[in-house]
Protein backbone atom coordinates (compact mmCIF):
# COMPACT_ATOMS: atom_id res chain seq x y z
CA UNK A 1 0.00 0.00 0.00
CA UNK A 2 2.87 2.36 0.59
CA UNK A 3 4.41 4.83 -1.82
CA UNK A 4 7.98 5.40 -2.98
CA UNK A 5 8.60 9.13 -3.32
CA UNK A 6 11.53 10.13 -5.50
CA UNK A 7 13.04 13.61 -5.25
CA UNK A 8 15.48 14.74 -7.95
CA UNK A 9 15.81 18.44 -7.10
CA UNK A 10 18.03 20.10 -4.54
CA UNK A 11 16.16 21.47 -1.50
CA UNK A 12 17.99 24.74 -2.25
CA UNK A 13 16.25 24.92 -5.62
CA UNK A 14 12.56 24.54 -4.81
CA UNK A 15 9.98 22.81 -2.69
CA UNK A 16 10.25 19.25 -4.02
CA UNK A 17 11.83 17.81 -0.87
CA UNK A 18 9.66 19.68 1.63
CA UNK A 19 6.50 18.77 -0.29
CA UNK A 20 7.53 15.13 -0.57
CA UNK A 21 8.30 14.90 3.15
CA UNK A 22 5.12 16.80 3.99
CA UNK A 23 2.90 14.52 1.92
CA UNK A 24 4.59 11.19 2.68
CA UNK A 25 2.57 8.94 4.95
CA UNK A 26 4.07 6.81 7.73
CA UNK A 27 5.53 3.67 6.17
CA UNK A 28 6.32 5.38 2.86
CA UNK A 29 9.86 5.57 1.48
CA UNK A 30 11.64 8.67 0.18
CA UNK A 31 14.51 8.20 -2.26
CA UNK A 32 16.77 11.16 -3.07
CA UNK A 33 18.33 11.00 -6.53
CA UNK A 34 20.32 13.34 -8.80
CA UNK A 35 20.59 16.80 -7.17
CA UNK A 36 18.10 15.63 -4.55
CA UNK A 37 20.92 13.88 -2.68
CA UNK A 38 22.38 17.16 -1.42
CA UNK A 39 19.44 17.40 0.99
CA UNK A 40 20.72 14.35 2.89
CA UNK A 41 24.05 15.95 3.84
CA UNK A 42 24.66 16.10 7.57
CA UNK A 43 24.59 19.69 8.81
CA UNK A 44 22.72 21.05 5.80
CA UNK A 45 19.61 23.11 6.44
CA UNK A 46 17.48 20.27 5.06
CA UNK A 47 18.95 17.72 7.49
CA UNK A 48 16.49 18.48 10.30
CA UNK A 49 13.48 17.75 8.08
CA UNK A 50 15.09 14.48 6.95
CA UNK A 51 15.79 13.48 10.55
CA UNK A 52 12.19 14.21 11.50
CA UNK A 53 10.88 12.09 8.64
CA UNK A 54 13.09 9.16 9.61
CA UNK A 55 10.84 8.63 12.63
CA UNK A 56 8.01 7.39 10.39
CA UNK A 57 9.51 6.85 6.92
CA UNK A 58 12.55 5.24 5.36
CA UNK A 59 14.87 7.67 3.59
CA UNK A 60 17.27 6.49 0.90
CA UNK A 61 19.83 8.10 -1.38
CA UNK A 62 21.10 6.81 -4.69
CA UNK A 63 24.76 6.05 -3.92
CA UNK A 64 26.21 6.81 -7.36
CA UNK A 65 24.60 10.28 -7.27
CA UNK A 66 26.06 10.90 -3.78
CA UNK A 67 29.53 9.83 -4.92
CA UNK A 68 29.32 11.94 -8.07
CA UNK A 69 28.88 15.00 -5.87
CA UNK A 70 31.96 14.28 -3.80
CA UNK A 71 30.09 13.05 -0.73
CA UNK A 72 30.75 9.91 1.27
CA UNK A 73 28.50 7.68 3.37
CA UNK A 74 29.68 9.37 6.58
CA UNK A 75 28.57 12.77 5.23
CA UNK A 76 24.92 11.67 5.25
CA UNK A 77 22.33 12.20 7.97
CA UNK A 78 22.51 9.10 10.11
CA UNK A 79 19.66 6.70 9.38
CA UNK A 80 19.66 7.52 5.66
CA UNK A 81 20.43 4.39 3.66
CA UNK A 82 22.35 4.29 0.41
CA UNK A 83 21.14 2.12 -2.48
CA UNK A 84 22.60 1.34 -5.91
CA UNK A 85 20.63 1.21 -9.17
CA UNK A 86 19.46 -2.35 -8.47
CA UNK A 87 18.30 -1.17 -5.07
CA UNK A 88 16.35 1.63 -6.76
CA UNK A 89 14.59 -0.99 -8.89
CA UNK A 90 13.82 -3.10 -5.81
CA UNK A 91 12.33 -0.08 -4.06
CA UNK A 92 10.13 0.73 -7.04
CA UNK A 93 8.99 -2.89 -7.25
CA UNK A 94 8.27 -3.18 -3.53
CA UNK A 95 5.95 -0.19 -3.29
CA UNK A 96 2.41 0.09 -4.64
CA UNK A 97 3.21 3.26 -6.57
CA UNK A 98 6.05 5.63 -7.28
CA UNK A 99 5.53 9.34 -7.05
CA UNK A 100 8.10 11.68 -8.60
CA UNK A 101 8.58 15.10 -7.05
CA UNK A 102 9.97 16.99 -10.03
Amino acid sequence: MSTLHTVNKSPFDGTSLSSALGLALPGDAVLLIEDGVVGARKGSSAAKAIEASLASCKVYVLGPDVAARGMKAEDLVSGVESVDYAGFVDLAANHARTQSWL
Partner: peptide, 11 residues
Protein backbone atom coordinates in the same frame (compact mmCIF):
# COMPACT_ATOMS: atom_id res chain seq x y z
CA UNK B 1 -4.06 15.24 0.19
CA UNK B 2 -1.59 12.61 1.38
CA UNK B 3 -4.50 10.21 1.86
CA UNK B 4 -5.91 10.97 -1.63
CA UNK B 5 -2.50 10.20 -3.12
CA UNK B 6 -2.18 6.94 -1.20
CA UNK B 7 -5.47 5.72 -2.69
CA UNK B 8 -4.29 5.94 -6.32
CA UNK B 9 -3.11 3.19 -8.62
CA UNK B 10 -0.93 5.62 -10.56
CA UNK B 11 0.35 9.13 -9.78
Amino acid sequence: MAKVMSEQDVV
